[in-house]
Design a protein around this nucleic acid. Sequence first.
DNA 1: CAGGTC
DNA 2: TCTGG
Length: 300
Amino acid sequence: MAWRKIACSKTELDLGVTLICGQSFRWKETAPGEWTGVLKNLVWNLKQSDDLLFYKTLEESPAASSDLTQEDILKDYFQLHVNLSKLYEQWSSDDPNFKSKASSFRGVRILRQDPVENLFSFICSSNNNISRISGMVERMCEEFGTSLGEYEGLHHYSFPSIESLAKGSVEQKLRKLGFGYRAKYINQSARFIMENHSEHWLHNLRKLPYNEAKSELMKLCGVGAKVADCVCLMSLDKNDVVPVDTHVWQIAQKYLPSLRSSKTITPQVYNAVGNHFRELWGEYAGWAHSVSLHRIVYNF
DNA sequence: CAGGTC
DNA sequence: TCTGG
């Protein structure tokens, strides 16, 4: 199938960085500058030039998602309606530190992910590293997802439904797949959602204000403040949320010398750091955080 | 010790 | 606390 294209500047979207910077764990660089992954139960290939985003899918959209064109799916996923250059200007003018240290890393965007994939992937993220998380998520999809076909020798699977992760045998299977203590978190959270809510409950958290959505998420086993904030930012449209992890904590100590005395991230410190960056960077603070974080994690 | 949580 | 580097 031929490549199709969307007008999109590389300063608005840097595909490589955005796809592998630790938001989503399922994209792979299958050829230089070419990315393969699963989105809306379709296998996608993506690449870009300076002003175009190219895409193709393994199959045409199935009936279930035919109400959205594939172009709409991508525009929604990359949130292309958000003018990133304008935001960089704002962050640079409001924050000298951003301007000098982060503003040259253009095109780093927050994806608008599916909440189910986002939540269960980030339950895996605690006390863990990106390469191991990616392997775990892949094995979870192979074991509990449905096959979406084969492309260039690679099999692809949908992200598992909450129902499939709620079954009795799941914890033991995940432990065999190397999930450690996170196996129980995943199974218990899935079961809690199916027993108290429904498969669509997570999506509906998009309609709630940040604080309510966060406290709902934190009722789940294995979901603390940091994971809840990641889900709020990356799939529930809370663009001003800054998840505070060890890296953000490192950055925060430069901005907030008063907090240097704290050895660990207590709830008070967590909120102080998050609030600080939210006030500094404004409505899209979570997006600015991802740009800054990228610089730290990859040491550019 | 790694992008925490119970 | 699981597990891999």
